[in-house]
Design a protein around this nucleic acid. Structure first.
Lengths: 333, 333
DNA sequence: CTGTTAGCGCCTTCAG
DNA sequence: CTGAAGGCGCTAACAG
């Protein structure tokens, strides 16, 4: 338990070489004779020397640490993204500083600042509400930033997403083709660009293609959680909708159960397509049909992209779009 | 985008004081005249100075960073714990380095080492398999470590848990009292101390109290996930069990759906009590009755405990046990 | 291939 | 209440 830290000097002395040499072998620098390298490594093992990453970070100005700003780890969608990020980060020997933001701008700015203070080498940002202050802070940051599973209409930052507009359009079209004239879109706050500028747009496109007039009463906004989905059941039922595209799985599960508890049977009387294809979609009864998206990969690719940026490599594409799909289950006919 | 870092020296020069003084105001040291303090703060704001946490960490030997080792962020139980940890950490101005371990000892040891190299001020460990190598590594670590929602039979480390034995005993007893002679215990690997030394023990206690002989065929081991729970349905049905205590919610949901899909109706023909009371318990149909435990608090209290340890405060209790409860839903009569 | 020498940016006695 | 000076442990030229 003692603070008996053993440093590079101790190793150098014990191995009868200079600290520079020790530093070289620790960092895998090729310019070291095999013999001295072995000698040094023996001493390192014997003394149990462990490089001090903080000192290293100060001297080299690289911390091999990246910051991850996440709305809420408890949300399965973001947790999955985080997992993809962490796995790739580990692969490249980066550590992750994780900070929950609750989608609060104030918190986001605060953690961004503190991450920069920690001298992270890069940042991955997840969050739906990107406004001026945040954009500003991003622009001022002196390290690369990548958005994962999040869009900024301005596309100033590098990002990895799916084509939300198209995915939503397809789902809506699918429902229309199934015979529904009144398809609801159940989404999150319209301040969120991902809803306003992408998903809603895709929804409208589908209507337009089908020649169905847009009815704003069919666009329902709520929080991304089970309870608000459940409570929506009455509202949805009161609207003329006979089908719905829902942007969040928990929300969809809530709506589903709410409808079922009201005696409505799916898919006969109502159809639902949800958006994230999380494990939850197979746990409900009936199982939820869903847009599929490579959530884990969204995170993994974003992290890979960040490594390139940190390495000053050129990016082929700044805004990567990963393919999405569709999984037919039991809430659609 | 330039690396135009502005340091404490720049502030000092601009404010016409020494860097020591700037350091004092930044660190809220009281011994600074109001005027000079104001002056310095004005300059700090004007130049946009941001202390370099790495340099600070090197000089002060405190990084205000703690390491969190987690089996999998994607698992709702652990994500909830992590959330509790992060919230309290943020409250005390600590940052969190998050590392997924997949319950692999090799990975755990590796990330532990790398966290220590980063000079974290403390570590929170989540994981069910604590064996000699890990215990050893813990003992050698020069920073405090707290286990959250995880037990080590040896109780060498500080920890925050619930009384798993009692909780399991109560759930089992509840099922027995409901008229079942054959109650199954569906748990994870028995190498995990939490299963072998706590939950299984509680299960046996309940049998003993009721005077029911222990039947090892009723103790079923599987992975903590939906699929393995689902696949268990046949096995459970083939056994003589008419009720089950399940240690994981996804597993329980799987079992539930598996049984229902086989035409068995709950709670009439079979009763289930699960263990984590996650949101999932209200999403299944029928809803899952569950032991309730303060998962978020487990994390929050563990983090609070760690702050005390890092502060060299004495702990009243080294192994904190938080209260648990029971939520009656629809998989029990 | 190896050693020397400056820092990296800040904290922290120790004087005054 | 404030300044000067010595590290913290390591990397990175620069010699040799």
């Amino acid at each position: 338990m003692e603070k008996q830290t053993i440093t590079i000097y101790d190793v150098a002395r014990e191995a009868k070489v200079s600290m520079a040499t020790v530093s070289r072998v620790v960092n895998g620098n090729a310019n070291v004779k095999k013999e001295t390298k072995d000698k040094v490594e023996e001493v390192i093992a014997r003394l149990g020397y462990r490089p001090n990453a903080v000192a290293r970070g100060l001297a080299s100005r690289r911390t091999t640490t990246i910051g991850v700003i996440i709305p809420d780890v408890t949300d399965h969608y973001f947790a999955e993204l985080a997992r993809g990020i962490d796995d790739v980060a580990a692969m490249y020997h980066y550590q992750i500083i994780l900070a929950n933001s609750d989608e609060s701008n104030a918190k986001e700015l605060r953690v961004l600042d503190s991450l920069l203070g920690k001298q992270v080498d890069g940042i991955i940002f997840m969050g739906n509400l990107i406004n001026e202050p945040i954009r500003d802070a991003f622009a001022k940051a002196d390290v690369p930033i990548v958005l994962a599973g999040s869009v900024d209409a301005e596309q100033a930052q590098a990002s990895v997403t799916i084509d939300y507009t198209l995915a939503t359009q397809e789902a809506t079209t699918r429902l229309i083709k199934s015979g529904h004239q009144e398809v609801a879109l159940i989404m999150g706050p319209s301040e969120h660009s991902i809803n306003r500028d992408y998903k809603l747009v895709g929804y409208k496109q589908a209507l337009e293609i089908a020649g169905i007039p847009f009815d704003e009463n069919l666009v329902i906004t709520a929080d991304y959680d089970y309870q608000s989905g459940y409570q929506l059941a009455h509202i949805v039922n009161d609207s003329m909708a006979t089908a719905a595209v829902v942007v969040d799985d928990e929300m969809a599960a809530g709506l589903l159960n709410g409808l079922v508890d009201m005696g409505i049977s799916l898919p006969e009387d109502f159809e639902i397509i949800t958006s994230n294809n999380s494990r939850l979609t197979v746990m409900t009864r009936p199982q939820l049909s869903s847009i599929t998206q490579p959530i884990y990969d969204l995170g993994a690719v974003a992290m890979r992209m960040l490594t390139k940026l940190m390495n000053h490599e050129k990016l082929d594409v700044k805004n990567i779009i990963l393919p999405h799909g569709y999984a037919e289950r039991d809430t659609t006919k």
